[in-house]
Nucleic acid binder design. Sequence first.
DNA 1: AGCACGCCGACT
DNA 2: GTCGGCGTGCTC
Length: 833
Amino acid sequence: MIFYEVAVNAPIANTLTYKYSGPAIDIGHAVLVPLGRRKVTGYVLDRIEEDEQQDKGFVVKAVERVLSGDPVFPRELIPLYRWLSSYYHYPIGEVLFTALPAAPSAKSGIYAKLIPGCEEKLSTFAGVEETFPEVVLQLQQTRHLSHGMITRLRKSSNGRKLLSQLEKEQIIQFETEIITSRTQEKYQVVYGPSDSIAGLLSTDSSNEHGALQKWVEQTGLSLKPSELKTLGIVSELYRSLGTWVPKSAVQKQYKQSGRYLKSLVENNLLVQEESRVYRNPFGEPVDRKNTCTQQHTEEQRRVLEKILPAIAQGEFAPFLLHGVTGSGKTEIYLQAVQEALKAGKSALVLVPEIALATQMEEQFYTTFGDQLSLLHSGLTAGERLDQWHHLRQGSARVALGARSAVFAPLSDVGIIVVDEEHESAYKQDDGLRYHGRDVAVMRAKMAGCPVILGSATPSINSYANTTSGKYTLLSMEKRVSSRALPEVQIVDLSKGKRNRPDLFFSDQLIEAMNTTLERREQILLFVNRRGYSSSMICQDCGSIVQCRHCQVSMTRHRAKQKLLCHYCGFTLPVNILCQSCHSERVIGIGLGSERIEQEAEQLFPHARIARLDSDIASHRKKYLETLSAVRQGQIDILVGTQMIAKGLHFPGITLVGVIWADSGLAMPDYKASERVFSLLSQVTGRAGRGDKPGSVIIQTHQPHHYAVTCAQAHDYTGLVDKELPIRSLLNFPPFGRLVNIKFSGENEKLVEKAARKVNVFFMKHFTGGQIEQLGPAPSPLAKVKDQYRWQLLLKSSDYRILHAMVDSLQEHQSSLKLGNVKLSIDIDPENMM
DNA sequence: AGCACGCCGACT
DNA sequence: GTCGGCGTGCTC
């Protein structure tokens, strides 16, 4: 008998022990195990030798069965899973279910069996026939009660009564059955040559059909013309594909071929097999043009001289690559990955959550082809699983993807790259609240390999790690082919008269747009919000239309003719009465991408204008059409939100306008300045990447704010010099560490009470000046989806104290009696909303 | 999470 | 009396 350490799919902090008498189970397998009265999926994390398995005061149950054919994850990732569980204070089983794709899984439910020989007893059972005829019917017909039937019965008291009586009278017996078990592998039927004609199909004679016919005549086989035709198609496809031919591909050319394929197999000319289908994760076929590996710049060479030896060395080494937009960071990544592959290792590349196909994907695909596995957010569960298997089996050695790709099942990782490391999209904002970049660094540490964090505007945290000596700083300050950085002009929105005070366009911006359009060049307008008006205000009483379920203002969307809540999706008609005074005079204020698009149409009626925001991006086709239209110069003005600032390359754009730069500075967030700076820098970087120089106009109400002026001067260290003293004064990161304890529930009073209780608990058990408790207070978004939210922010220079506090809270959670209030813990919170 | 146990109010 | 409400606690 062998014992196993299993992480089960339930919110249980620790792993559980199970035994299994069958053949030894490898670490990493999915198993079905009993848990209480039910059966759940679990993952084997370790084997426990029998002599180590002392009596620990619980009865060890047996593994029900092994669910996976092969281990689902490489065992070298187990320490990372354990670290995630303890660092983010999240149950180990749920860590695994977050980190793994929808792999073999099973669940059980209760059903009831009719005890043999009880049919008579059943019919004499008082009252069943009248109240529950369907129960009698099901038992007679199938000799059991289904899970669905039992759940239905349990909803009524009479049903429950019936069930317990049937059990008491020994008519039925409850058992658990597996009700869902899914694997999303897709298979297809493929055909290949049998031994007898293998030689014939591999020859690349140009007169294929003739050769086949000749061969058939020689062997004296009597093939029908249709069979010969089918065989011809198969052989043609076999040669062009270079591999076995899917049945569907043959049938596409010849509809009736199914039956002939069958007879060809019977005649031992073709062999039929089932093969795993790997769905194509590239939405559209990507042009595999060769990127001419240009000469590296002096800076690139200097950076590579540091990184490449570290990869060959195979030791943990964190680098922060600070390179201005256009300095050629991607080339560094490509070289680094190549170096790792050369050393026989694999590579992991993380990019922020991006809507769809980007330059980065294209370049990696061009360079690494089938070696590359893409793990972006647009994949279906099935596609994701396919990519997982590719990596698992080593048929792909480079993984490129967003946040969750950090869990890619690569073994022997030689390099990890995190592009745009400052992006807050790396932070998962629910469930296991991990930071993709931080996990990447930890993974590199465990794997013993270098990690490159790249950014044009590094996070203050990472930058601080270079001055403290934890990371090595590598800088690239020049743009490839020494293109100049764009000229940036700041326009003060609060000063001076405007020709069009009704619009969000300053005179300077309008003029610059005019000259740009005259030169037949392209313009990008950047807006912070989608929609038309960011909120609706009543002109009589001044109240703002709020979502019924969330404490946020409703945004007007003109195209949809609706008011929309961006948090829960709740909609209202446009023509509503004021919620407090019932006035009809409710109008939109503030701006959104739709409105800017409309105003641009008014100002430049002859310009071709397009909009790109997440409303559009949800329509993949429309999104890609817009992208290519912009690239081909069919669009003069592109209006967009955040998503256009990232990773997209538009050579034709020479003017960038930022409509309202300081809107982000009002956020209740210690990172607001850092964010605004990096957003402005990114948008600014979109200008003039072609051979023409670019210019940028930033409209703002706070022209003297350092986030704005530093972005204007392309001065990253200037920002750091301003920002660090402020952070230091308030002991915010990188000086102090933060933990946000979040409370939520339907009952506002109870949520508040719970938050106060925890606050008191901490004050009692953790005294001394090393900890600061901010709050408890209602969250900046005090209500979302009918859930009231409070939070308690903990701050300390010593993260070990913070972890001790959270551990202690979780330990005493039940005795604190927080009632129905849900508690969730956010370690290193990125977003305080 | 799910599921059982157990302790109190409102019904036959 | 007991039925059924939900708060509390455990799962190898």
